[in-house]
Design a protein around this nucleic acid. Structure first.
Length: 735
DNA sequence: GAGTTTGAAACT
DNA sequence: CAGTTTCAAACTC
């Protein structure tokens, strides 16, 4: 997924963009990022989903106890601006973030003295306010629960929906947004940082680990059936050797580990900031990231942080060896201040996140039980700039599988889904595309661009959520690379082999068979519906993240040709017309609009006045249509009745056997079938024939006749059973 | 399963 | 915007 360049910001509709200034400090040049437009006004404030999101903040964590409080403000303050990555909840596809790990320490661990967010509140007006602490928090590790957001450069992403349907926001570490200098260990080995997000049932958990840990600990994660999201972090600047770390956002199915003290030093600390609101309190999960990770901690330094649902109960846990888990929940003092924004014509709700201008309390987790010196205390990252995002969040659809991409720049996100898997299209840098949000597929995600004071947006066409109860997707953006010629690709690989049985069987769409379009034209249903090809039969498919650039170009081309190309074709008609009608109308000539060639007929709607079809028979009074409908209904009824009859008969037989059991065991009694003598059978047949004749005389439909006969047969059986229970001798049945 | 038909999408 | 071509799904055998 690419991030739309900042230029796009100016094009975004005013409805969703709040141009209130945000103090975006563009201090650190990022070579691979698009230069921030100096003259451009502050990026418009983007309203966010009204669903109060959970906020997961991945922040540079202060190192263990031995870490000094040396300030690394310089590293953290050079971020290129607050960025929000918002994705339709439920399924995080993937995101890639290229950053340089901040490491300014004299030891293996890095201490970062970052300003803390005094509090994150969501007041009644639904404005999320992140207050900046007047003074930088001490990195003494005594406040592990403190949630800190960087003033700028902070990335937030809505990773998914919690079980309660609340969006989960991820606040990425500030250091991910800009290069930093690593010092101390002298370890020249570059360790890719990966972030894996593992979700079980729509509830992502984040774990951070070093690359070596990722490799070594992957089996453990897999054993837990964790869904992972990988975000490879590459340093753009490194003076003491490249530092690549992998952050693993994981959620262990076993929550027991959360409460157990960690015997192994986790690489990072996590924060879960919960907020209580009358309706849907957002949660903020802050994950501190250690800039440097001792090599000896590999394999055990993974930390899985699970957002807790308890909004008011601070919890901090540290995972143990192998399945190290560390979780901190920081209750917010006040509800987040989120302002709802309604975009005309948009089905999505937006909320506006505003910068906290004041604040004196620092969100902190409850008393930390972490006594392990190796456990890093989450370092709050100051966010002094207003968070301005307006992104629609679609109902969550979880992703089921993640195939980690080892040590690549691509981030991979896969979430489990109870619903058919659907992937969201990756966003791209599309400055030329008018950000007509209404023309984008539902679930489109706008992600802030990196590298400028203004936020760019990643455009993520999503499945037609209006037609799909729970579209699955997760979006991750590579904000730092979207502007590069070879953007880091992120892809959730969802091969058939990787899909579970239920997932494969629940696939909502038939696999496409494209051969020439590379699945990058609207010919391809997958592409047209904003999905990646998955388990398709297509040839030379480019509808995947491996060909993200081509795909993005294709999306742009489609939107250029038709701004509403990804909008559902079946929409509401005019008043007085049918509730559903084709937006364009069909153009059939030979099918009479009574075959699936016709898009109207296929959608089970009648043609309307906007159709240009010839010889249309798909209208209300059409006898052909009525005949077809009648035949279809009859077939359906027949199937249903046959099924019901089988069920009923089976039930009766079972009941018969059950009732006759006492007769067998009581001794002396006759088995029921002994009562079905020839006479009884003949009488039964007579009854059935009589019923059939009556149905025929009354010109009952075949289905009805069958039902009547079966019902009569049931009555006969009941009489036989009744006789069996009463009589000890054969008894003719009198119909 | 191969071949044909069909109409939307893409192209000119 | 209209005509033509391309394409993949729907359909038939």
């Amino acid at each position: 997924m690419d991030v739309v360049s900042p230029e796009l910001n100016s094009l975004l509709p005013d409805e969703i963009m709040d141009t209130e200034a945000i103090a975006m400090e563009e201090e650190l040049p990022v070579e691979h990022l698009a230069a921030p437009p100096q003259s451009e006004p502050e990026p418009p404030q983007v309203p966010m989903e009204t669903e109060v999101p959970e906020i997961v903040s991945l922040c540079p964590a202060t190192t263990s106890m031995q870490m000094s409080s040396a300030s690394t403000d310089a590293q953290c303050s050079t971020s290129s601006g607050t960025q929000l990555l918002l994705a339709p909840s439920g399924l995080i596809t993937s995101t890639t973030m290229t950053t340089t790990t901040s490491a300014k320490t004299t030891g293996p661990a890095v201490t970062q003295n970052l300003p803390k967010i005094s509090r994150v509140t969501v007041p009644a007006n639904h404005q999320l306010i992140i207050n900046k602490v007047a003074s930088a928090p001490a990195a003494d590790g005594k406040s592990p629960g403190t949630a800190v957001l960087k003033p700028e450069g902070q990335k937030l992403l809505v990773a998914g929906l919690s079980k309660t349907g609340q969006p989960i926001m991820l606040a990425l570490p500030h250091t991910w947004n800009k290069p930093a200098t690593t010092q101390g260990t002298g370890d020249a080995k570059a360790q890719p940082t990966q972030i894996k997000m593992l979700t079980t049932v729509g509830k992502p958990v984040i774990a951070v680990s070093s690359a070596s840990q990722l490799m070594g600990g992957s089996s453990t994660l897999q054993a837990q059936q964790l869904k992972t999201l990988q975000i490879t972090k590459k340093p753009t600047v490194s003076t003491a050797g490249p530092m690549i770390t992998k952050l693993i956002i994981t959620k262990a199915l076993n929550n027991k580990g959360l409460s157990s003290p960690a015997s192994v030093a986790p690489v990072v600390t996590g924060r879960v900031v919960t907020q209580s609101t009358p309706v849907t309190p957002p949660r903020t999960i802050t994950i501190g990231e250690t800039s440097t990770v001792p090599q000896n901690t590999s394999g055990n330094s993974k930390v899985a942080i699970s957002p807790l649902k308890s909004p008011s109960k601070p919890v901090q846990t540290v995972g143990g060896v192998g399945t190290s888990q560390f979780k901190t929940i920081i209750p917010l003092g006040t509800p987040p201040n989120v302002q709802q924004i309604q975009v005309p014509g948009s089905r999505f709700h937006y909320v506006r996140l505003v910068t906290a201008t004041t604040g004196s309390t620092t969100a902190q987790s409850g008393g930390s039980t972490n006594t392990n010196p190796s456990i890093q205390q989450a370092k709050p990252v100051m966010m002094n700039a207003a968070v301005r995002m307006s992104v629609p969040i679609v109902p969550a659809q979880s992703i089921k599988q993640v195939v980690p991409k080892p040590f690549t720049s691509a981030a991979q996100v896969v979430t489990t889904s109870q619903t058919p898997q659907r992937l969201i299209m990756p966003a791209t840098h599309l400055p030329q595309i008018q950000p007509n949000l209404t023309s984008l597929p539902p679930g489109t995600v706008l992600a802030p661009a990196h590298g400028s004071g203004n936020m760019g947006y990643a455009v993520l066409p999503a499945p037609y959520v209006t037609q799909i109860p729970q579209p699955a997707f997760v979006t991750l953006t590579s904000s730092s690379t979207f502007s590069t010629a070879t953007p880091i690709q992120t892809q959730a690989r969802l091969s058939l082999n990787g899909l579970s049985t239920s997932e494969a069987t629940s696939r909502p769409r038939k696999p496409c068979n494209c051969t020439r379009s590379q699945c990058l034209k609207l010919y391809c249903d997958c592409f047209a519906n904003g999905e990646f090809c998955n388990n398709c039969n297509c040839v030379n498919c480019f509808n995947n993240l491996d060909h993200e650039s081509e795909r993005l170009k294709a999306i742009k081309a489609c939107l250029d040709r038709n701004p509403v190309a990804f909008k559902p074709k079946i929409g509401k008609g005019k008043q007085g017309e049918s509730d559903r009608r084709h937006s364009k109308g069909c153009n059939c000539k030979k099918s009479g609009c009574l075959k699936n060639y016709c898009e109207c007929y296929e959608a089970k709607i009648m043609c309307s006045s906007i159709c240009k079809c010839m010889g249309c028979k798909n209208f209300e009074e059409s006898p052909e249509r009525k005949t077809l409908m009648h035949l279809a209904d009859a077939a359906e009824v027949r199937v249903q009745q046959q099924t019901a009859a089988k069920t009923k008969l089976s039930s009766q037989i079972s009941d018969l056997l059950t009732r006759t059991t006492p007769a067998v065991t009581s001794g002396g009694g006759k088995l029921p079938y002994t009562f079905v003598t020839k006479e009884v059978a003949e009488a039964t047949c007579d009854c059935l024939l009589e019923q059939a004749e009556q149905a025929e005389l009354t010109t009952q439909p075949q289905a009805v006749a069958e039902r009547l006969i079966l019902e009569e047969f049931g009555r006969c059986l009941r009489r036989i059973i009744s006789f069996a229970g009463k009589a000890k001798t054969d008894c003719p049945i009198n119909c």
